[in-house]
Amino acid sequence: MRKSILLVVVVVLVALYASLFVVQEGQRGIVLRFGKVLRDGDNKPLVYAPGLHFKVPFFESVKTLDARIQTMDNQADRFVTKEKKDLIVDSYLKWRISDFSRYYLATGGGDVSQAEVLLKRKFSDRLRSEIGRLDVKDIVTDSRGRLTLDVRDALNKGTDDEDAAAAATTEADNAIASVAKRVEQETNGKVPAVNPNSMAALGIEVVDVRIKQINLPAEVSDAIFQRMRAEREAVARRHRSQGQEEAEKLRATADYEVTRTLAEAERQARITRGEGDAQAAKLFADAFSQDPDFYAFIRSLRAYDESFKSGNDVMVMSPNDDFFRYMKSPEKTIKP
């Protein structure tokens, strides 16, 4: 008896444990019974908020949906601006589920990959359309913030009839519209109407759109770098030629100053030497004028010294020449 009671208690505890489920914070729960989602009176899937909930054990299962903000990183792609110039734009966006019932139905059971495929295609088309309305200057300067804001609003609100008529319908628009129509059919038209061109048709809200990097294509970048290098080299050559011209001017000025200084110094030296020679000549003249005979004697001695420096000198002169008068005997040279 006691074993039977114990067995019943164990079965009850297991059933109670199997009937409880917890939805964590940052998640939402969808209950499936025999693989089919439980729906409310409007035929929309029942969404369970975070907390403790009950389900029929063994017959019902729980699928959780992430309610947190998701980040979708897009691969850098080529876009054409208003000026018909190519840009390589690297971007990402953040999104979250705004309507869990619609999201579950639109993505075939909450398939994140399917949601991101549609979101990425729609985002790429919208970003391409917005960039095509701007030139390069507006994209890389103050219009960059407005660009991402316009893309986010267009994704959330969709395009109105006028914009839809002006723009060609893309494959992503058709896919989202088809999903929105299927959701409306499954809920018997009891879900609120939304713009089939917006991400609200998938139960998604785009929180933020950001552009990480904008580059020029490799072939364009290479051409621009080559042109910039050529321009810088031309500027460098111009500066070098100007520097050489200034150097030549400075060297010419310096050479002129050197030549002028040397000429002035030479002139001043000649004047000084001339004045010195004149002063010396005056002194000699004053000195020798006091005794002319002595002066004549000194001059003769100097002439002898200059004439007979070498022993091989030969002079053909008359012995009675006046040049030798001081070489004769004193008695012959002294006059009475």
Score class of each variant (00 low, 15 high):
F123I: 00
F123D: 02
F123T: 03
F123K: 00
F123C: 01
R126C: 10
R128L: 00
S129D: 10
E130V: 09
I131E: 02
G132H: 03
R133Y: 10
L134I: 06
L134W: 03
D135Q: 01
D135E: 08
V136S: 00
V136C: 01
K137D: 10
I139F: 06
T141E: 11
D142S: 12
D142M: 10
R144Y: 06
R144A: 13
L147D: 02
L149H: 12
V151L: 07
A154F: 03
N156Q: 07
N156R: 05
K157W: 07
T159A: 12
D161I: 08
D161R: 11
E162I: 10
D163Y: 08
D163K: 13
A164M: 10
A164I: 04
A165F: 12
A167L: 15
A168Y: 12
T169A: 12
A172G: 02
D173S: 04
N174C: 06
N174T: 14
A175Y: 00
A175K: 08
S178P: 01
S178E: 11
V183A: 08
Q185I: 13
E186S: 12
T187I: 08
N188I: 03
N188E: 14
G189M: 03
K190F: 09
K190Q: 13
V191S: 13
A193Y: 07
A193S: 14
A193F: 07
V194L: 09
V194M: 04
V194P: 06
N195E: 05
P196A: 10
N197I: 04
S198L: 05
A200S: 15
L202Q: 07
